[in-house]
Design a protein around this nucleic acid. Structure first.
Length: 472
DNA sequence: TTTTGAGTTGTTCGA
DNA sequence: GTCGAACAACTCAAA
C-alpha cells in the first residue's frame, strides 16, 4: 500500500476493466486522476476535428462518472514530459500508473517520463490493456512474431481459450488527495484549436454509450454479421472502432460479451465468431507495428519500396473530395468527410482505388484517413493500407485490384448507399447508378470518371511486376 | 533440414 | 450465367 498515486488516462477513458487504473486503485490510499491534451499529438497533422469531438465527449462522460463517485479528473494541456512529473511532485505521489501505448511516439514519451520519475523515487506501473495479448505473448514455435494472420489467429485463440482473461468490474476508487485547486472543465474543440465537427459521428463518446452499443450490436446485428458486414447499405458492422480507439470500451469486454451472446443463442455463433476474428486482426496489426516499427514509413515487403507512384495531386484531391466519378468510391469518401467514419468494405474499395487506379502512394491515403477517421488506430490503419496496396503482410498477390464498378454492384446492389451520399445521382436506378457515365442525361451534375479503370489496372500491374521481377 | 500446405476480403477471360 | 484457370511464384509456419 502506498499513500498517494496518480493515474494518467490516455486512450483508456473508462473505469471498468481498466488494468492500470485497477492496480492503482488497489495500491493507493489516495488517487489523483489526470488527462493531458498532449501537444505532441494534438498539434500533429494527423488529428482531426471528428476525433477531437469524440474524445471530448468521452472525457465529459468520464468526468461526470468520476464525480458521481467522489473523484475528479484533472485536465491539462501541454507536454506530458513536463506536466506529469510536475503533477506527481505537487501531490507528493509515490506511484504513477498508465496503460501502455505502443505507437512509436508514445513509447518514446513514456520511456522518458518513466525514467525521470523513477529517478525521484516514484514507482511506475504500466499495464498492457489495449490488446488482449501484447507483441511477445503470441509467438511462433521458434519464438518469432507471426507475419501471417491465420496461424497467428490460431495461436492467439489457443492461448485465449487457455487463459480466458475476463473483463473486470469497475473498482472502488480511493478518494483524491485533499489539495487546493478546483475542478477543470472539458474544453471545447475550438479552445483546442479545432473546428467544431459539424457532421454526425458514428457513435456517441463515453463508457456507457460504448457498452450500450456493444450489447445492442450483439443482440441484433451479431447473428448476421458475417453476411451483412460487407454491405454499406445495411447497418451490419458494430461501429465500435471509436470506442476501442479511445478505450471507452475494452477488447476484453467485447470478447466476454461475444461469448455470452453465443452462449445465449447458438444461432449467433457464425456471425459473432466472424466479428471476433476482426478483433484478432486488430491485435495482429498491433503486434506487427510493435515488432516492425519501420512499416510506418516503409512497405512491409521491402521490394515494394521501389514502386513508382504517379502521385498526381489533382487525382489525390479528387479522391479526398469524393469527386472521382466512381460512385461507390465517392460515396465512401463523402461518408468519411461527413461522419468521421467509413464502412470497412468502402475503406478497402477507396484504398484500392487510390493505390491501384490513381497510382497514388498509400502513405498519402493513410495520412488522410488518420486525420479524418474518428477511430484512426495507427496499427490497423497502416495494416489496412498496406493490405490494399499489396505491400503488407498479406501473402495474396499484387494483382488483386478491385473493380470499383463491380464492387458497387455487388455490395450496394440497389444503389441505396450511393444515393444517400452522392446527391447528384439521386435519380438513377440500381442498373445505372454504379456506372453513371453511361446515362449522361440523368447524371449531368456528376463528374465523369477521372481515369479508365481497365487502362489503369494494366498500368498498375506493369508497375508492380517491374519491382518484383528479379534482377530488374 | 526438408517437406508440405496454405495464404481475409479479386478480376478477367474463355469455354 | 457459371465455372475454372490464369494472374506468379514465394514465404511462412509447422511437422
Amino acid at each position: 500500500m502506498v499513500g498517494r498515486g496518480l493515474h494518467w488516462f490516455r486512450n483508456d477513458l473508462r473505469v471498468a476493466d481498466n488494468l492500470a487504473l485497477a492496480e492503482a486503485a488497489r495500491r493507493c490510499e489516495r488517487l489523483s486522476l489526470l488527462f493531458v491534451f498532449d501537444d505532441g499529438l494534438l498539434g500533429g497533422a494527423d488529428m482531426g476535428s471528428a476525433r477531437v469531438t469524440f474524445l471530448l465527449e468521452s472525457l465529459t462522460a468520464l468526468q461526470r462518472r468520476l464525480e458521481s463517485s467522489g473523484q475528479t479528473l484533472r485536465l491539462l494541456r501541454g507536454d506530458p514530459r513536463k506536466l506529469v512529473p510536475r503533477m506527481l511532485d505537487e501531490i507528493g505521489a509515490e506511484l504513477l500508473s498508465f496503460n501502455r501505448d505502443t505507437t512509436p511516439y508514445a513509447l518514446a514519451r513514456d520511456r522518458e517520463i518513466s525514467e525521470r520519475v523513477r529517478g525521484s523515487g516514484v514507482e511506475v506501473v504500466s499495464e498492457n490493456d489495449r490488446v488482449v495479448f501484447s507483441g511477445d505473448a503470441v509467438l511462433t514455435k521458434t519464438g518469432r512474431p507471426y507475419t501471417v494472420f491465420t496461424p497467428y489467429r490460431n495461436a492467439w485463440m489457443e492461448r485465449y481459450t487457455r487463459l480466458r482473461p475476463h473483463a473486470a468490474r469497475a473498482p472502488r476508487l480511493p478518494p483524491p488527495p485533499r489539495l487546493p485547486g478546483g475542478k477543470t472543465s472539458v474544453p471545447s474543440a475550438e479552445e483546442l484549436g479545432f473546428e467544431t465537427f459539424s457532421g454526425s459521428l458514428p457513435a456517441r463518446g463515453g463508457e456507457e454509450p460504448g457498452r450500450r452499443r456493444l450489447v445492442r450490436f450483439l443482440e441484433t446485428a451479431g447473428a448476421t454479421y458475417h453476411e451483412d458486414r460487407d454491405r454499406p447499405d445495411r447497418d451490419g458492422t458494430s461501429r465500435l472502432s471509436p470506442h476501442l480507439h479511445f478505450g471507452t470500451l475494452s477488447v476484453r469486454q467485447c470478447l466476454d460479451a461475444a461469448q455470452s451472446a453465443i452462449d445465449d443463442d447458438s444461432r449467433r455463433r457464425t456471425g459473432v465468431r466472424k466479428w471476433v476474428d476482426e478483433l484478432i486482426w486488430r491485435e495482429f496489426y498491433a503486434q506487427v507495428l510493435e515488432h516492425h516499427p519501420r512499416v510506418r514509413r516503409r512497405s512491409f515487403k521491402p521490394e515494394f519500396d521501389a514502386l513508382e507512384w504517379e502521385d498526381r495531386d489533382e487525382h489525390f484531391e479528387a479522391w479526398c473530395a469524393g469527386e472521382t466519378g466512381f460512385p461507390i468510391v465517392d460515396a465512401g469518401m463523402r461518408q468519411l468527410r461527413a461522419t468521421g467514419w467509413m464502412h470497412n468494405r468502402l475503406r478497402m474499395i477507396v484504398a484500392s482505388f487510390l493505390t491501384k487506379d490513381l497510382l497514388v502512394d498509400w502513405r498519402r491515403g493513410e495520412a488522410h484517413f488518420s486525420r479524418l477517421l474518428v477511430d484512426a488506430d495507427a496499427a490497423s490503419n497502416n495494416g489496412g493500407w498496406q493490405w490494399a496496396a499489396s505491400t503488407g503482410t498479406d501473402a495474396q498477390p499484387y494483382f488483386r485490384i478491385f473493380n470499383p464498378t463491380r464492387q458497387g454492384e455487388r455490395y450496394d446492389p440497389e444503389g441505396e448507399f450511393v444515393r444517400r451520399w452522392v446527391g447528384e445521382l439521386e435519380g438513377l436506378g440500381p442498373r445505372e447508378i454504379h456506372a453513371p457515365s453511361a446515362s449522361p442525361l440523368l447524371a449531368a451534375d456528376y463528374p465523369a470518371p477521372i481515369v479508365d479503370h481497365a487502362e489503369r489496372r494494366e498500368e498498375a500491374l506493369r508497375r508492380y511486376k517491374r519491382v518484383r521481377a528479379p534482377g530488374r
